[in-house]
Write a protein that binds this DNA or RNA. Structure first.
Lengths: 227, 227
DNA sequence: GGGGAAGTCTTACGGCCGTTCGAAATTGGC
DNA sequence: GCCAATTTCGAACGGCCGTAAGACTTCCCC
């Protein structure tokens, strides 16, 4: 019937698809986007399939038809966004490697790791909600997601290898721990934590300026690595 | 009949004794401990009241009789452990303040913040599971818990005030951000993240040595603050 | 030892959940 | 314009959930 509840310009005409191509997967895409947003805002367990399909304006059965199950939907969002984010990171890392004859300094390695997710965090960025989703999925996801996070460290190894080469004077163990600390700083960038920080600082802090935030994080982490 | 003997007035009376005294609240305690463990290991939403009462070896109705509801049970665990942890932190902070005539250095302030939770993290520590619970409750808790975390920053303000005094040369905004980063490092100490770190480092890292971990974290964070 | 409060037990209610099924509608190829 | 495949739809099923009601047991005080 009337899928979208937007109530604006509902032409009874052929109703051409939004993008102009690939109209077959329009429903699947609506589900994907709505689910990502709701999962990011309220968590996986607190969002029902009915919530998702209602927000997407599609039929209840769409999730199981297009994705198989609610778990599989979560996993597909997680996979796509993870690949997307890690691709940006790897690209930046290789650029830094090329720029420095195979041995970039610590700051550039950390910048390759942190810049993509922080760019996503910008208030008007298309992937802002995706980053919140990924942070949540890391701790609230299914067993399968947790297994992938623990097992597949190939992406992270690129960065630990680069750091080991940049700081051959440090014990490898120390490098791994400091990378762990840096990732902790990153994963703490949730909406709720920003709210708390804003209350504490009485509004003087602003996470909207992601450039400044990136600079602060890089400064802090680089100092930690240089110690 | 009216089990809602709310803990506003009679809190923290009996706790440690499990068998010694003819304690009326032995069942309540069994539920408390079992729930804390299961929540910490599997998350709030993934643990049912039936799971809790089965693990505790008590009747299904015990949760609602002694705590009012499942949400209230979570909240009571959260409150007690938070108070416990923050009391230890505040004690250490005041000791540092007394030791340094009201103006302790950054490292001692951070030590007061990080030492108690890291002590809890020791493999044989009684509160090991409590710390995992608190980390989880921070992001997976109920709306009420999240509201408390965002609103009640009085505990955290003690530390930000001390840091502001220790580094008057830094803009206040910078202090708040660096405190935020440090807390991110701390909250990343979940079992799952340790597993991932161990895979990445091929077993060379060990979170069992909490003294070493505390040293590493303090070193890293202090360097970040000194930058 | 009787009475009443406190605690424990069994049982079940109402509700929301993820998933499925068969029918209806739409689409694409010829 | 017809057929077959794909997609959407309404409806419902079985299940687990949190919670409550009411009967039963324990224990302490008078």
């Amino acid at each position: 019937m009337s899928p979208k509840s937007d109530g604006a310009a509902v032409t009874t005409a052929p109703e051409t698809d939004v993008e102009g191509v690939d109209n077959e997967a329009v429903t699947k895409n609506l589900v994907f986007v709505a689910a990502e947003r709701l999962f990011a805002l309220h968590g996986f367990q607190n969002v029902s399939v009915r919530d998702i399909t209602a927000a997407a304006g599609v039929n209840l059965a769409s999730v199981n038809y297009h994705f198989g199950s609610k778990d599989a939907l979560l996993y597909e969002i997680f996979r796509r966004r993870t690949v997307e984010l890690n691709r940006e990171r790897a690209k930046k890392l290789h650029e830094a490697i090329d720029r420095h004859q195979g041995n970039p300094p610590v700051r550039e390695i950390l910048a390759a790791l942190l810049t993509p997710p922080l760019k996503w965090l910008a208030p008007d960025h298309e992937r802002r909600i995706s980053l919140q989703f990924l942070i949540r999925a890391r701790s609230e996801g299914t067993d399968e997601i947790r297994k992938v996070l623990q097992t597949d460290v190939t992406h992270l190894r690129r960065f630990s290898d680069a750091l080991l080469k940049a700081r051959p004077d440090l014990p490898a163990e120390e490098i791994y721990w400091r990378l762990h600390f840096t990732l902790g700083m990153l994963h703490n960038n949730r909406f709720a934590e920003f709210d708390r920080l804003n209350v504490l600082s009485e509004g003087t802090t602003s996470e909207a300026d992601v450039e400044a935030l990136l600079g602060r994080m890089l400064h802090f982490a680089e100092a930690g690595f240089s110690a």
